[in-house]
Protein backbone atom coordinates (compact mmCIF):
# COMPACT_ATOMS: atom_id res chain seq x y z
CA UNK A 1 0.00 0.00 0.00
CA UNK A 2 1.45 3.30 -1.03
CA UNK A 3 1.98 6.23 1.25
CA UNK A 4 -0.77 8.13 -0.52
CA UNK A 5 -3.21 5.33 -0.02
CA UNK A 6 -2.45 5.27 3.67
CA UNK A 7 -2.96 8.98 3.90
CA UNK A 8 -6.20 8.67 2.01
CA UNK A 9 -7.47 5.99 4.33
CA UNK A 10 -6.58 7.87 7.44
CA UNK A 11 -8.20 10.96 6.00
CA UNK A 12 -11.30 9.02 5.10
CA UNK A 13 -11.40 7.44 8.52
CA UNK A 14 -11.09 10.82 10.13
CA UNK A 15 -13.93 12.23 8.05
CA UNK A 16 -16.05 9.24 8.64
CA UNK A 17 -15.43 8.95 12.32
CA UNK A 18 -16.50 12.54 12.67
CA UNK A 19 -19.59 11.76 10.61
CA UNK A 20 -20.65 8.81 12.61
CA UNK A 21 -19.76 9.96 16.07
CA UNK A 22 -22.64 10.81 18.28
CA UNK A 23 -22.78 12.82 21.41
CA UNK A 24 -22.80 10.69 24.50
CA UNK A 25 -25.82 10.58 26.70
CA UNK A 26 -26.70 9.32 30.11
CA UNK A 27 -27.13 5.58 29.98
CA UNK A 28 -30.45 5.43 31.78
CA UNK A 29 -32.32 6.45 28.64
CA UNK A 30 -32.19 4.66 25.32
CA UNK A 31 -29.86 5.99 22.68
CA UNK A 32 -31.63 7.58 19.76
CA UNK A 33 -29.41 5.68 17.39
CA UNK A 34 -31.65 3.39 15.36
CA UNK A 35 -32.09 -0.24 16.30
CA UNK A 36 -31.25 -2.30 13.23
CA UNK A 37 -33.76 -5.11 12.64
CA UNK A 38 -33.04 -7.70 9.94
CA UNK A 39 -35.70 -8.86 7.47
CA UNK A 40 -35.46 -12.31 5.89
CA UNK A 41 -37.39 -13.73 3.00
CA UNK A 42 -40.40 -15.32 4.67
CA UNK A 43 -43.59 -13.56 5.67
CA UNK A 44 -43.92 -14.19 9.39
CA UNK A 45 -40.39 -12.98 9.99
CA UNK A 46 -40.86 -9.77 8.01
CA UNK A 47 -44.19 -8.95 9.61
CA UNK A 48 -42.77 -9.65 13.05
CA UNK A 49 -39.83 -7.39 12.24
CA UNK A 50 -42.24 -4.54 11.56
CA UNK A 51 -44.31 -5.44 14.61
CA UNK A 52 -41.27 -5.31 16.89
CA UNK A 53 -40.07 -2.17 15.13
CA UNK A 54 -43.48 -0.65 15.76
CA UNK A 55 -43.25 -1.46 19.47
CA UNK A 56 -39.74 0.06 19.65
CA UNK A 57 -41.00 3.18 17.91
CA UNK A 58 -43.93 3.38 20.28
CA UNK A 59 -41.37 3.46 23.11
CA UNK A 60 -39.63 6.38 21.40
CA UNK A 61 -36.78 4.51 19.73
CA UNK A 62 -35.60 4.90 16.17
CA UNK A 63 -35.67 1.80 14.02
CA UNK A 64 -34.09 0.74 10.77
CA UNK A 65 -34.74 -2.40 8.71
CA UNK A 66 -32.10 -4.17 6.69
CA UNK A 67 -32.60 -7.14 4.35
CA UNK A 68 -30.24 -9.92 5.39
CA UNK A 69 -29.49 -13.53 4.70
CA UNK A 70 -31.01 -15.66 7.43
CA UNK A 71 -27.80 -17.63 8.03
CA UNK A 72 -25.31 -14.81 7.74
CA UNK A 73 -27.22 -12.50 10.03
CA UNK A 74 -25.68 -13.89 13.23
CA UNK A 75 -22.20 -12.89 12.18
CA UNK A 76 -23.59 -9.42 11.42
CA UNK A 77 -25.18 -9.17 14.85
CA UNK A 78 -21.93 -10.26 16.45
CA UNK A 79 -19.97 -7.53 14.67
CA UNK A 80 -22.68 -4.96 15.35
CA UNK A 81 -24.01 -4.28 11.84
CA UNK A 82 -27.38 -5.60 12.94
CA UNK A 83 -28.80 -5.15 16.45
CA UNK A 84 -31.29 -7.97 17.02
CA UNK A 85 -32.73 -11.14 15.57
CA UNK A 86 -36.22 -12.18 16.58
CA UNK A 87 -36.61 -15.58 14.92
CA UNK A 88 -33.78 -18.01 15.61
CA UNK A 89 -35.10 -21.41 14.56
CA UNK A 90 -33.32 -24.19 16.38
CA UNK A 91 -33.09 -26.74 13.63
CA UNK A 92 -32.28 -24.42 10.74
CA UNK A 93 -30.22 -21.67 12.32
CA UNK A 94 -29.14 -23.19 15.62
CA UNK A 95 -25.69 -23.96 14.23
CA UNK A 96 -24.99 -20.47 12.89
CA UNK A 97 -26.38 -19.00 16.11
CA UNK A 98 -24.19 -21.04 18.44
CA UNK A 99 -21.13 -20.45 16.25
CA UNK A 100 -21.61 -16.70 16.63
CA UNK A 101 -22.43 -17.11 20.34
CA UNK A 102 -19.11 -18.87 20.91
CA UNK A 103 -17.13 -16.24 19.03
CA UNK A 104 -18.54 -13.57 21.35
CA UNK A 105 -20.41 -10.32 20.76
CA UNK A 106 -23.84 -11.92 20.54
CA UNK A 107 -26.20 -12.66 23.43
CA UNK A 108 -28.94 -15.26 23.80
CA UNK A 109 -31.97 -13.15 24.63
CA UNK A 110 -34.54 -15.78 25.59
CA UNK A 111 -37.21 -17.86 23.84
CA UNK A 112 -40.57 -17.20 22.31
CA UNK A 113 -43.53 -19.09 23.72
CA UNK A 114 -43.97 -20.72 20.31
CA UNK A 115 -42.21 -24.02 19.76
CA UNK A 116 -41.03 -24.98 16.34
CA UNK A 117 -40.93 -28.15 14.33
CA UNK A 118 -38.95 -28.50 11.13
CA UNK A 119 -39.16 -31.83 9.38
CA UNK A 120 -40.26 -33.73 6.32
CA UNK A 121 -44.00 -33.74 5.73
CA UNK A 122 -46.74 -33.69 3.14
CA UNK A 123 -49.80 -31.65 2.18
CA UNK A 124 -52.88 -33.42 3.50
CA UNK A 125 -54.24 -34.70 0.17
CA UNK A 126 -51.15 -36.86 -0.19
CA UNK A 127 -52.18 -39.05 2.76
CA UNK A 128 -54.38 -41.24 0.56
CA UNK A 129 -51.45 -42.06 -1.75
CA UNK A 130 -49.65 -43.72 1.07
CA UNK A 131 -51.84 -45.49 3.62
CA UNK A 132 -50.48 -45.47 7.14
CA UNK A 133 -49.02 -41.96 7.10
CA UNK A 134 -48.06 -40.00 9.13
CA UNK A 135 -46.28 -42.98 10.74
CA UNK A 136 -42.89 -43.27 9.03
CA UNK A 137 -43.28 -47.05 8.73
CA UNK A 138 -45.71 -46.36 5.88
CA UNK A 139 -42.73 -45.27 3.82
CA UNK A 140 -41.40 -48.82 3.82
CA UNK A 141 -44.22 -49.77 1.46
CA UNK A 142 -43.08 -50.14 -2.16
CA UNK A 143 -46.48 -49.07 -3.50
CA UNK A 144 -46.21 -45.91 -1.48
CA UNK A 145 -42.77 -44.99 -2.75
CA UNK A 146 -43.66 -45.46 -6.39
CA UNK A 147 -46.21 -42.63 -6.17
CA UNK A 148 -43.35 -40.24 -5.56
CA UNK A 149 -41.06 -41.19 -8.44
CA UNK A 150 -39.74 -38.38 -10.65
CA UNK A 151 -37.77 -38.62 -13.91
CA UNK A 152 -34.46 -37.92 -12.23
CA UNK A 153 -34.97 -40.01 -9.09
CA UNK A 154 -33.74 -43.27 -10.58
CA UNK A 155 -36.98 -45.15 -9.95
CA UNK A 156 -37.05 -44.33 -6.24
CA UNK A 157 -39.54 -42.14 -4.44
CA UNK A 158 -38.26 -38.61 -4.13
CA UNK A 159 -38.31 -36.43 -1.04
CA UNK A 160 -37.53 -32.76 -1.50
CA UNK A 161 -35.32 -31.46 1.27
CA UNK A 162 -34.53 -27.76 1.75
CA UNK A 163 -31.18 -26.33 0.64
CA UNK A 164 -28.14 -28.19 1.86
CA UNK A 165 -27.33 -24.98 3.71
CA UNK A 166 -30.03 -25.72 6.22
CA UNK A 167 -29.11 -29.10 7.67
CA UNK A 168 -26.31 -30.59 5.59
CA UNK A 169 -26.88 -34.29 5.07
CA UNK A 170 -29.22 -34.89 7.97
CA UNK A 171 -32.16 -36.19 5.93
CA UNK A 172 -30.21 -38.44 3.50
CA UNK A 173 -28.40 -39.91 6.50
CA UNK A 174 -31.68 -40.51 8.29
CA UNK A 175 -33.23 -42.19 5.25
CA UNK A 176 -30.21 -44.51 4.99
CA UNK A 177 -30.19 -45.22 8.72
CA UNK A 178 -33.88 -46.11 8.76
CA UNK A 179 -33.32 -48.55 5.89
CA UNK A 180 -35.39 -46.55 3.42
CA UNK A 181 -32.47 -45.94 1.06
CA UNK A 182 -33.57 -48.57 -1.48
CA UNK A 183 -36.99 -47.01 -1.94
CA UNK A 184 -36.35 -43.33 -1.39
CA UNK A 185 -33.89 -40.71 -2.51
CA UNK A 186 -33.46 -37.17 -1.23
CA UNK A 187 -33.15 -34.19 -3.54
CA UNK A 188 -32.07 -30.82 -2.28
CA UNK A 189 -34.11 -27.82 -3.33
CA UNK A 190 -32.09 -24.63 -3.69
CA UNK A 191 -34.30 -22.26 -1.74
CA UNK A 192 -37.56 -21.94 0.16
CA UNK A 193 -39.06 -20.60 -3.08
CA UNK A 194 -38.27 -23.90 -4.75
CA UNK A 195 -40.15 -25.75 -1.98
CA UNK A 196 -43.24 -23.59 -2.39
CA UNK A 197 -43.07 -23.92 -6.18
CA UNK A 198 -42.98 -27.70 -5.79
CA UNK A 199 -45.90 -27.57 -3.36
CA UNK A 200 -47.98 -25.42 -5.73
CA UNK A 201 -47.08 -27.53 -8.76
CA UNK A 202 -47.89 -30.78 -6.96
CA UNK A 203 -51.24 -29.37 -5.89
CA UNK A 204 -52.12 -28.31 -9.42
CA UNK A 205 -51.13 -31.65 -10.83
CA UNK A 206 -52.69 -33.56 -7.95
CA UNK A 207 -49.58 -35.70 -7.50
CA UNK A 208 -47.82 -36.76 -4.35
CA UNK A 209 -44.95 -34.88 -2.82
CA UNK A 210 -42.98 -35.03 0.38
CA UNK A 211 -41.14 -31.84 1.19
CA UNK A 212 -39.26 -30.25 4.01
CA UNK A 213 -41.37 -27.71 5.87
CA UNK A 214 -41.78 -26.09 9.23
CA UNK A 215 -44.37 -24.81 11.62
CA UNK A 216 -45.46 -22.11 12.40
CA UNK A 217 -45.71 -21.35 8.71
CA UNK A 218 -48.31 -20.16 6.21
CA UNK A 219 -48.81 -23.76 5.05
CA UNK A 220 -50.41 -24.58 8.42
CA UNK A 221 -53.66 -23.08 7.23
CA UNK A 222 -53.93 -25.17 4.05
CA UNK A 223 -53.34 -28.45 5.88
CA UNK A 224 -49.87 -29.89 6.18
CA UNK A 225 -48.83 -32.93 8.20
CA UNK A 226 -45.38 -33.84 9.42
CA UNK A 227 -44.18 -37.43 9.24
CA UNK A 228 -43.77 -39.10 12.64
CA UNK A 229 -40.19 -40.30 12.63
CA UNK A 230 -38.79 -42.08 15.71
CA UNK A 231 -38.63 -39.42 18.44
CA UNK A 232 -35.60 -37.22 18.86
CA UNK A 233 -33.30 -37.87 21.76
CA UNK A 234 -30.25 -35.85 22.69
CA UNK A 235 -27.24 -37.12 20.75
CA UNK A 236 -29.18 -39.25 18.27
CA UNK A 237 -27.94 -37.34 15.23
CA UNK A 238 -24.85 -38.50 13.34
CA UNK A 239 -23.10 -35.15 13.88
CA UNK A 240 -23.45 -35.75 17.63
CA UNK A 241 -22.26 -39.33 17.30
CA UNK A 242 -25.68 -41.00 17.13
CA UNK A 243 -27.07 -43.49 14.62
CA UNK A 244 -29.33 -40.95 12.92
CA UNK A 245 -32.53 -42.94 13.37
CA UNK A 246 -34.56 -40.06 14.73
CA UNK A 247 -36.79 -37.19 13.71
CA UNK A 248 -36.38 -33.50 14.47
CA UNK A 249 -36.57 -32.12 18.00
CA UNK A 250 -39.31 -29.92 19.32
CA UNK A 251 -37.26 -26.81 18.78
CA UNK A 252 -36.87 -23.39 20.30
CA UNK A 253 -37.60 -20.08 18.66
CA UNK A 254 -35.05 -17.77 20.17
CA UNK A 255 -34.19 -14.11 20.18
CA UNK A 256 -30.65 -12.81 19.93
CA UNK A 257 -29.09 -9.37 20.40
CA UNK A 258 -25.77 -7.68 19.90
CA UNK A 259 -23.83 -7.51 23.17
CA UNK A 260 -23.88 -3.70 23.24
CA UNK A 261 -27.63 -3.46 22.80
CA UNK A 262 -28.54 -3.69 26.52
CA UNK A 263 -26.01 -0.96 27.25
CA UNK A 264 -27.11 1.47 24.55
CA UNK A 265 -30.84 0.77 24.65
CA UNK A 266 -31.55 -0.60 28.14
CA UNK A 267 -35.30 -0.07 27.97
CA UNK A 268 -35.74 -1.48 24.51
CA UNK A 269 -33.56 -4.44 25.47
CA UNK A 270 -35.68 -5.11 28.54
CA UNK A 271 -38.82 -5.04 26.43
CA UNK A 272 -37.29 -7.36 23.84
CA UNK A 273 -36.31 -9.81 26.57
CA UNK A 274 -39.92 -9.99 27.75
CA UNK A 275 -41.31 -10.20 24.24
CA UNK A 276 -42.71 -13.59 23.42
CA UNK A 277 -45.16 -14.66 20.76
CA UNK A 278 -47.16 -17.86 20.54
CA UNK A 279 -47.60 -20.07 17.50
CA UNK A 280 -51.09 -18.71 16.99
CA UNK A 281 -49.92 -15.11 17.08
CA UNK A 282 -47.11 -15.75 14.60
CA UNK A 283 -49.46 -17.64 12.32
CA UNK A 284 -51.93 -14.76 12.45
CA UNK A 285 -49.22 -12.29 11.45
CA UNK A 286 -48.16 -14.41 8.48
CA UNK A 287 -51.77 -14.98 7.43
CA UNK A 288 -52.36 -11.24 7.08
CA UNK A 289 -49.79 -11.26 4.29
CA UNK A 290 -50.04 -14.71 2.78
CA UNK A 291 -53.79 -15.07 2.85
CA UNK A 292 -55.21 -11.53 3.12
CA UNK A 293 -52.53 -10.29 0.67
CA UNK A 294 -51.66 -7.18 2.68
CA UNK A 295 -48.20 -5.66 2.45
CA UNK A 296 -45.87 -6.54 5.30
CA UNK A 297 -45.91 -3.02 6.74
CA UNK A 298 -49.70 -2.76 6.63
CA UNK A 299 -50.06 -6.19 8.17
CA UNK A 300 -47.83 -5.18 11.06
CA UNK A 301 -49.75 -1.94 11.60
CA UNK A 302 -53.03 -3.81 11.65
CA UNK A 303 -51.73 -6.44 14.03
CA UNK A 304 -50.36 -3.80 16.39
CA UNK A 305 -53.66 -1.95 16.34
CA UNK A 306 -55.73 -5.06 16.98
CA UNK A 307 -53.47 -6.58 19.63
CA UNK A 308 -52.55 -3.64 21.85
CA UNK A 309 -53.22 -5.75 24.94
CA UNK A 310 -50.74 -8.38 23.87
CA UNK A 311 -47.78 -6.15 23.24
CA UNK A 312 -48.38 -3.36 25.76
CA UNK A 313 -47.54 -5.74 28.58
CA UNK A 314 -44.04 -6.32 27.16
CA UNK A 315 -43.26 -2.62 27.46
CA UNK A 316 -43.98 -2.44 31.17
Amino acid sequence: MGENMKKLISLLSAIVISFVSFTGIALSADSKKPIVIPTHNWSSQVVMAYVIGGIFEDMGNNVEYVPADSQAVYESIRIGDVTISHEVWESAFGKSFTTALDKGGLLDWGDHEARTLEDMGYPNWVAKLCPGLPDWNALKNKDCAKNFVTPDSGGKGRMLEGPQTWHGDLIPQRIEALGLGDLWTVKFAGSADALWAELAAAKKEGRGTIIFNWTPNFTDGAGFTFIDFPPYTAGCRPEDGGDGKCGSPDGYLKKAVNADFPKTHPKAAAMFKKLSFSTGQIGAMAALVDIDKMTHEDAAKKWLKDNKKVWKKFTK
Binding site: D69, Q71, A72, K95, S96, T99, L160, P163, Q164, T165, W166, K187, F188, A189, G190, S191, D193, A194
Partner: peptide
Protein backbone atom coordinates in the same frame (compact mmCIF):
# COMPACT_ATOMS: atom_id res chain seq x y z
CA UNK B 1 -29.27 -22.44 -10.61
CA UNK B 2 -28.32 -23.47 -7.08
CA UNK B 3 -31.49 -21.65 -6.04
CA UNK B 4 -33.50 -24.25 -7.91
CA UNK B 5 -31.49 -27.11 -6.56
CA UNK B 6 -28.33 -28.43 -8.18
CA UNK B 7 -25.52 -30.62 -6.98
CA UNK B 8 -22.65 -28.65 -8.44
CA UNK B 9 -20.21 -25.95 -7.37
CA UNK B 10 -23.05 -23.44 -7.17
CA UNK B 11 -24.80 -25.36 -4.41
CA UNK B 12 -21.59 -25.17 -2.40
CA UNK B 13 -21.22 -21.47 -3.02
CA UNK B 14 -24.77 -21.05 -1.73
CA UNK B 15 -23.88 -23.22 1.21
CA UNK B 16 -20.83 -21.10 1.99
CA UNK B 17 -23.22 -18.40 3.20
CA UNK B 18 -23.83 -20.33 6.38
CA UNK B 19 -20.63 -22.32 6.55
CA UNK B 20 -18.17 -21.81 9.37
Amino acid sequence: GAFIGTEDLGQYILKALSDK
